[in-house]
Design a protein around this nucleic acid. Sequence first.
DNA 1: TCCAATATAGTCAGTACTGATTAATCAGCA
DNA 2: TGCTGATTAATCAGTACTGACTATATTGGA
Lengths: 184, 184
Amino acid sequence: MNIPLYLLGFLSRCGPQHGYRLKRLIAEMTADAADIKLPTVYYHLDKLQLQGHVTGSKSQEGKRPERSVYSITETGRKALQDMLAEALQFDYRPKFEADAVFFFIDSISKDVLVTTLNRYRERLEAVLAQLDDDREEGAAVPDMQSREMTEVVFSHYRHHYLAEVSWLSDTIDRLVAKGSRIPS
Amino acid sequence: MNIPLYLLGFLSRCGPQHGYRLKRLIAEMTADAADIKLPTVYYHLDKLQLQGHVTGSKSQEGKRPERSVYSITETGRKALQDMLAEALQFDYRPKFEADAVFFFIDSISKDVLVTTLNRYRERLEAVLAQLDDDREEGAAVPDMQSREMTEVVFSHYRHHYLAEVSWLSDTIDRLVAKGSRIPS
DNA sequence: TCCAATATAGTCAGTACTGATTAATCAGCA
DNA sequence: TGCTGATTAATCAGTACTGACTATATTGGA
């Protein structure tokens, strides 16, 4: 997910942050397109610190355990530019986890498969509806720039969910057609 | 990628195998849809052995280092059925690694972005062409059952690559339209 | 027949990631 | 005011994965 890019990017845009706040910032600003787990955030902040791309200033307040505010450094800004250039390579390599099933359907009845796929299609259509709701909500993202780009990202998901539905329809048709030719 | 499902599935279908052979079997039979790395294969075979789903019989031939032939056990076949049922849940959650760029384009000129996206589209179209070639090749997969299902999987990739191209076109149009309204 | 290249079979050490847990603070309300 | 549940902030121990490496066997050609 190119996590360091998100971390440096938002540290640069929003100024010094605690790891925890940074994680939430990213989730909010990207409308959850990037939901990075908290331990993962700290893992990468540590690495970035070793590389000198961020500095963490520890500070003790009262009896609280130590906590750090992370800031991007000058070399961090350089690294950010490099990462952006790298990300511009745009390499799409999807993995369809569930496709394994198709290699072993001989142990599944065709009826069950078709029924399951139909249910899957219903769920996908629900996700699409949800996605449109979230888009409306994403319209609440503060700055203009981010909002427009959030639209681009939403559209990205939308296209692929539609593709999934379309493939599903084809596949169901194919299975049903085959079933009618060779009725079991 | 549900690797244990592939391992048990092909051990079941093709009989006892060395880890190495199993890996290649899977690559061939799935026309590379599942390219599992060799150390990953052994990692999961070890786990499956601990769980009792496969047995590995060590055998020394000549001066060769020890090597194991793995077989699926009865509990392994049970586990395989469970995994198939689980995989039938069909959960599609795409992650678009490169989308991070869109949240930081303010530091990139629009011209560069549009040029880059156009180049990306060209590359995608090449991949689509390659995909069709591979499909032809996949037609050489031995048994009928596998071949048909390989078609389904190819069609899956095809739909999503087409979606990617279609999203790209929309996005480029959007960027260009915006650029013409507010010429920099 | 000897050698280089390739195929076969596997290990190891390190990277990336995350579920579960800890620990203090704060807001609401009985 | 004292208790409860949510929020803020972070760590730890474990899982999953893989690049780089080791070692033998086989094969095609000079």
